[in-house]
Design a protein around this nucleic acid. Structure first.
Lengths: 137, 137
DNA sequence: TTTTAAAATTGTAATTATTACAAATTAAAT
DNA sequence: ATTTAATTTGTAATAATTACAATTTTAAAA
């Protein structure tokens, strides 16, 4: 069985054709795509696909913790099949979002005790990637 | 002179009446407001104020590093007069955004060397605040 | 297997945050 | 006082996302 399908079932999501397509895209393309990027890529292979289905599915996947939403960009949400705690980097030049190797991330402890119960921690870095370093500034 | 005014001048921003109003609001209200919250609050005291001016000013303040933009919420950007590196928490219940005391934040070192130059690191936590813990779930 | 019910998908319209832009106002410079 | 530049304003446009009703697909029951 396809990995995407397994992944969905594991998270109590019925693996419809559309959902498997979307889940599979996220597993294979670790570029932290936007909903629109996903729709445009998959639309050519599945011309009946609706943009709404992409939004609905992404919402479902996030709710069931099969993927995570990344709000590193104020314009549009991005999605990542890797739900482990890892940092992200967004280049101010090209706009690309990449995984980033961090040290000390796991050591972050938030004083939650009294005030808050924390389910999730996101780390977002901003700056310039190698390519954009040369081209700009 | 007003603190807000000083703060603007320090960041090379001409302290117009509107800018001082907005800067002052952010300094006095550490609730990480949205542009709309700022507009609605200030509009009653300054009925000539335009929503566009709020957006323009916030953009200018961010560009000049007089404030920082927080993208913890995918719906709308939030703003914070405190530009030091500190973590934020958003309650899934009430939607409020609060500062959070963290340990180990300063210890985060990103392996930037080769790949990236990092200007800024944001840490966002999600969960439930004290109040919403009781009320929900 | 046919019928019925539930779930998922689709397309369009609505909503919301934000930006573009041109006109009007205010401030600064000559 | 005039001219120029900067800022503010209001409206219209854009872009991402959501609401919703209709349709299609899947599952369940008869």
């Amino acid at each position: 069985m396809e990995l995407a399908q397994k992944h969905l079932i594991l998270h109590n999501i019925k693996p419809s054709v559309q959902r498997v397509f979307i889940m599979n895209y996220l597993l294979e393309n670790k570029i932290h795509p936007t909903a629109d990027m996903i729709f445009n890529e998959l639309y050519v292979k599945m011309p009946t696909l609706s943009r709404t289905t992409v939004y609905n599915t992404l919402k479902l996947l996030v709710d069931e913790k099969a993927i995570q939403m990344i709000t590193i960009d104020e314009k549009n949400a991005r999605y990542d099949a890797d739900t482990s705690r890892h940092a992200h980097f967004k280049c101010k030049g090209c706009g690309g979002v990449f995984d980033v190797i961090t040290s000390g991330v796991d050591a972050i402890t938030v004083k939650e005790s009294e005030e808050f119960i924390i389910d999730d921690v996101q780390i977002y870095c901003h700056g310039y990637c190698k390519k954009c370093m040369k081209n700009h500034i």
